[in-house]
Design a protein around this nucleic acid. Structure first.
Lengths: 345, 345
DNA sequence: ATGAAAGCGCTAACAC
DNA sequence: GTGTTAGCGCTTTCAT
C-alpha cells in the first residue's frame, strides 16, 4: 500500500482524505467544516481545522466543480488586450470578478469569428459559468449561436434580442462630437469612419449624419473610410486636408485616428486647432499626452467592464436571463484640439 | 427513471454516457475515439463520431482534469493589464498559450504582495499547470514561497535561484540610453528613477550610474526619484529643469515619465530636444505619437510574454524545472526627443 | 453530530 | 477491438 503517513513530508498535495485520516473523522465531516454546512461538534471542528493547517490543505476546485457544476470562473472574449480600450474593460471585469471570487479567462479573438467560436467552445469545455463578450463585430445571429446556452453579457454593442448588454449610445456620442464642432463655428465637417463591420463605428457614422441633418445651416460634409488605427487616420486626414474643400472640423471615429489626422495636419503645415479642429472618440490615456491634447468623447472602459461582470453575476444568481441593459452616457472631454473658428491664440 | 431519450431535445449537456448509449457501445470506447488512444474498429468509430455530432457532445474538461491532473490552463500574474507594457505581455502569453491549447487566467495584483499571494492560492486551487509572473516587485523569497511548487516563469525580473526567467538586461539598456545622451554631447545628465522597490527601476538606475562612471570626461549628474508615471516625470522634470544646473540630457526611467518631462520642459518654455534631450525606456506605442516623438529603449513586451509561455510549456513537457533564461537585447530607438548638442534645426 | 455510500464525467488498467 | 471496473477529490443524501 502506498499510503503516505499523514505526518510524513510528502511532495503530493493533501486531499480531504488525508485531513480526515489525520483528524480521525470521516471525509464528510471534513467537507462540512470546510463548507460550514451542517452540524459539526466544536471539538471535532477544531481537530479538523488543525489537521487542515497542519497538512496545508486547500480544496481541489476541480473536484468541487465536477460535483457542483460551479467553477467560479468566466470567460472574457475581447478582440485584443493590447488595445487600451479593451485592456480597460479587461481590468474592470477582472476587478469586479475577483471581488466575487471569480476568475477570468482571457481570450483574444482579433475580431475573427472563427476564433470567437473556438474560444467559446473551449470555455464551454472548461465550464465557465458565463462569458463577457466585448467588441465583437460578428453578425449577431452567428455570435449568439456560438454562445449557445452560456450565460453572457455583451459589451460595446447592443444585443437586439436580449436584455443583457452594457453599452454606450455611440450614435448620441457622435452627435455630441459633431455638434461640438458645429458650435465652434465649423461649417465644413468631415468624418472618418471605423472599419466596415464595426457596430460602434457604424453607430458613430450614423450619429454624425444625424447631427449634420438636424442642423439648420447648410453644411458641406465629407465621409472617409478609416480603420480605427493611427495610420488610417493619417491617410484619411492627408486626403481630406489636401482636397478641394478643406474641412474646418474633423470628427475621427476614434482617438487613434484623430491622432493620425493631427499628424497629417502637422505634416501639411496646418495648425490644429487654428486651421482645423479635430475631435476623437474613446478618451484613451494617450489623448491627454499628445500635442495638442485631444478633445474627445469619453468611453469609460473600466466601468463598462465592471458593469458587465456585475450584470453577468446578477444573472447567475437569479437564474433569470434578462435584466436591464446598462447604458453609459457619452461625455465630451474638452481639450486643445478643437477651438472656436476664427479665435486667435 | 429520468433517462432522457437520446433523440429528445434536452437542455442538459450530453455526457460521454449519452454518446455511448446512442452509439450502442461502452464509455471506454467513446473515450478511445475522442482521445485517439487504443484500437477502435472503423465502423464503431464512425458510429461513435456520428453520435457525438448528433448530441453536440463536447467533453467535460473538468472531469478530464480531475483524472489527468491536467487542466490546460495557466495563470498570468501581472500588476495591471491596463498598463500597455503588461497588456503586451498578456497578449504574447495568451497567443503562445492558445497555440498549445492552453487557456490563461488573468490576475491583476497592482504590485501588492497580498494580492499576489491570494491569486496564487486561487490558481493552485484551480489546478493551473503553471504560472507566468510578470513585473512583480515583491521580495524574491516571499514570492517564491507563495508560488510554492507551481511551475513558473518570471518575466521582467531575474529569479536568482532559478533558470526560468525571461528578461531584459535593464542595466545594460540604461547604459545604452545614457551613453546615447553622452555621445550626443550632453555633459550634464540627469536620471529619474522608478518607484523604490521596482527591480527594473533599480537596474536602470544602476546602469545610469555605471555608464556615467565609465565615461572619461567629468560629468555633472543628478538623480531624482520618480514613480514610472507621467505625473512623477512631470514633477521631477520641473525640479530638474528649474534647478541651478539645468541638465542638457535627461534619461527617464520609463516612457511615461519621459512624456512628463517633455511636458514640464514645454511648460517652462524649453525646447526638446534643442534645449534638453530626453530619452525614455520601454518604447510604448504612445512614444511614437507624442511630439516630439520619443527616443527610447525598446522593450518587446509581446515577445517576452510569448517567450515566457513557451518556456513554461517546455518545463511542463520535460518535467525538468530549469531551462536556460531567455534574455532580450535592449535596443535604442532613435526618434526626435534627442539630438546632438549645439545642432541647429 | 457523524459516517457510509453514491455519484459528478471522465480515464486507464485489466479482462475477455 | 471492446467492455468492465476502479478510481480522481469532492459533495450530498440518507442512515445512525
Amino acid at each position: 500500500m502506498h499510503h503516505d503517513g499523514p505526518n510524513e513530508c510528502d511532495p503530493t498535495v493533501a486531499t480531504i482524505k488525508d485531513v480526515a485520516r489525520l483528524a480521525g473523522v470521516s471525509v464528510s465531516t471534513v467537507s462540512r467544516v470546510m463548507n460550514e454546512s451542517g452540524y459539526v461538534g466544536t471539538d471535532t471542528r477544531v481537530k479538523v481545522q488543525q489537521a487542515m493547517v497542519q497538512l496545508n490543505f486547500s480544496p481541489n476546485d476541480i473536484a468541487r466543480g465536477l460535483v457542483s457544476k460551479k467553477t467560479a470562473s468566466i470567460g472574457l472574449l475581447i478582440p485584443d488586450v493590447s488595445n487600451p480600450f479593451f485592456a480597460d474593460i479587461a481590468r474592470g471585469t477582472e476587478d469586479a470578478a475577483i471581488a466575487q471570487g471569480f476568475s477570468v479567462i482571457l481570450c483574444n479573438s482579433d475580431w475573427q469569428m472563427d476564433r470567437e467560436r473556438m474560444y467559446l467552445d473551449i470555455l464551454r469545455g472548461k465550464w465557465v459559468e458565463g462569458v463577457v463578450v466585448a467588441g465583437s463585430r460578428s453578425p449577431e445571429q452567428v455570435l449568439l449561436k456560438a454562445i449557445g446556452d452560456l450565460p453572457f453579457v455583451m459589451v460595446d454593442r447592443r444585443a437586439v434580442h436580449q436584455g443583457n448588454s452594457v453599452w454606450m449610445d455611440n450614435q448620441r456620442g457622435a452627435m455630441v462630437a459633431t455638434e461640438h464642432l458645429f458650435n465652434l463655428g465649423c461649417r465644413h465637417l468631415a468624418h472618418i469612419t471605423g472599419p466596415e463591420h464595426s457596430p460602434s463605428g457604424q453607430a458613430r457614422h450614423a450619429g454624425f449624419i444625424q447631427a449634420v441633418e438636424a442642423s439648420a445651416s447648410v453644411l458641406q460634409t465629407q465621409v472617409m473610410q478609416g480603420d480605427f488605427r493611427v495610420d488610417g487616420g493619417y491617410r484619411a486626414g492627408l486626403q481630406l486636408l489636401q482636397g478641394q474643400q478643406r474641412p474646418d472640423g474633423i470628427f475621427a471615429g476614434n482617438d487613434l485616428m484623430a491622432i493620425g489626422v493631427i499628424h497629417a495636419a502637422q505634416f501639411l503645415g496646418l495648425r490644429v486647432p487654428q486651421d482645423v479642429s479635430v475631435i476623437g472618440y474613446d478618451n484613451i490615456a494617450m489623448a491627454q499626452y499628445v500635442a495638442p491634447k485631444l478633445t474627445t468623447i469619453d468611453q469609460p472602459g473600466y466601468e463598462m467592464g465592471k458593469a458587465a461582470f456585475e450584470m453577468l453575476y446578477r444573472q447567475l444568481q437569479s437564474e433569470q436571463e434578462l435584466s436591464e441593459d446598462v447604458e453609459f452616457e457619452p461625455t465630451l472631454v474638452l481639450r486643445e484640439s478643437t477651438q472656436n473658428r476664427g479665435q486667435k491664440r
